[in-house]
Computed example of a mutant assay.
Amino acid sequence: MSNWVKTILFLVGSALLTHWIPSSFFRNLDTMVHEFGHAVVTLALSGKVMYIELYADHSGVTYSSISKSWALIPVSLAGYMTASVFAWFLFSAYAKGKQRLGLQVMIALSGLSLALFVRNGFGIMFLIGFMALTIIVLALAPKWLRDFYYLLMAFLCLEESVFGPLSLVLYAWQNSRAAGDASNLANHTGIPAIAWALFFTLFALWCAKRAVQAFLGRSRGVRASNRQTPASAYRD
């Protein structure tokens, strides 16, 4: 079975499984990472970030200003691409047995977002609650529960990072002016919004493929290790 087929099946399976779990609250992690990407690139290009708002429906918006018109292109690219790379990072960390590092990165990004950017009520409550829960899991939870929590976050980020751009394709098809980042890119490049939405989707799928490869590689390694039988010890 090809890696692309595995990736598609993996995404569909993870979407079905995560929808059986009460996970609506945690889906805002992907939104936070998306908006954080916009904010960081804005600051890197000498722009100003006023604030970020995160909403209960998993949407978000970054209010910023930047003097260089060309800089709006990398800023608009940053959101979906950052979310896709972050999902890949979580699975790469899992493949290397570095779940603690992944959880620490989640806490750090949430803390920076809370301290520097997010100002609306729901966004603040989400970040405080998510940070508190993740710190408790990191510090007190047994390994099996910590790994379950980590994989839940990773799968949700992976799912959201792919299905978000896919939804953008539909929005761009129906109304090119209502496709968020794709519309902004269309306005500044002349390339249609649907083309940018497809670009985001293809990039997300590429990152998802790498994430699935990392996860399956880790799983095969664990199974191979479990199949090994220890050699009999000999004592004289």
Score class of each variant (00 low, 15 high):
5 V>Q: 15
5 V>W: 10
5 V>E: 14
6 K>L: 01
6 K>H: 02
8 I>E: 08
9 L>I: 07
11 L>D: 00
12 V>I: 09
13 G>N: 00
13 G>D: 05
14 S>E: 05
17 L>F: 07
17 L>R: 02
17 L>D: 03
20 W>P: 09
21 I>H: 05
21 I>F: 13
27 R>N: 12
28 N>S: 12
32 M>K: 02
32 M>S: 08
32 M>I: 08
33 V>Y: 04
34 H>S: 01
35 E>R: 05
35 E>I: 07
36 F>D: 07
41 V>S: 05
41 V>Y: 00
42 T>R: 08
42 T>V: 15
43 L>N: 06
53 E>N: 15
59 S>C: 07
60 G>D: 03
62 T>Q: 00
66 I>A: 07
67 S>V: 13
67 S>C: 04
68 K>Q: 13
70 W>H: 15
71 A>E: 12
73 I>W: 06
73 I>K: 08
74 P>F: 01
79 G>E: 02
80 Y>T: 04
81 M>S: 11
82 T>I: 00
83 A>S: 14
84 S>P: 11
85 V>K: 00
89 F>H: 05
90 L>C: 06
90 L>R: 03
91 F>A: 09
91 F>R: 00
91 F>I: 10
96 K>R: 15
103 L>G: 02
107 I>S: 02
108 A>N: 03
109 L>C: 04
112 L>D: 08
113 S>V: 00
114 L>A: 13
116 L>E: 11
117 F>I: 03
120 N>K: 09
120 N>D: 10
124 I>F: 10
126 F>G: 10
127 L>C: 01
132 A>T: 15
132 A>F: 14
132 A>V: 09
135 I>R: 01
136 I>N: 04
140 L>I: 08
141 A>L: 02
145 L>D: 06
145 L>W: 14
145 L>C: 07
146 R>T: 00
146 R>M: 10
148 F>E: 10
151 L>Q: 00
152 L>K: 12
153 M>P: 06
153 M>G: 05
155 F>E: 04
155 F>M: 14
155 F>G: 03
156 L>V: 06
160 E>N: 07
162 V>L: 13
163 F>P: 03
164 G>M: 05
165 P>Y: 09
166 L>D: 04
168 L>A: 12
168 L>P: 01
168 L>S: 11
169 V>I: 15
171 Y>F: 12
172 A>Q: 08
172 A>I: 04
174 Q>E: 11
175 N>P: 00
175 N>H: 06
178 A>W: 12
178 A>R: 15
185 L>H: 15
187 N>D: 03
191 I>L: 08
192 P>L: 02
193 A>Q: 02
195 A>D: 11
196 W>L: 03
196 W>E: 10
198 L>C: 15
200 F>P: 10
201 T>V: 11
203 F>W: 11
206 W>D: 13
207 C>W: 07
207 C>T: 07
209 K>Y: 13
209 K>H: 13
211 A>K: 05
214 A>P: 10
214 A>W: 03
214 A>T: 08
214 A>H: 12
215 F>A: 03
217 G>V: 05
217 G>A: 09
219 S>N: 12
219 S>T: 12
220 R>W: 13
220 R>L: 13
222 V>E: 15
222 V>G: 04
229 T>H: 10
230 P>N: 11
231 A>R: 14
233 A>H: 10
233 A>L: 14
233 A>R: 15
233 A>I: 14
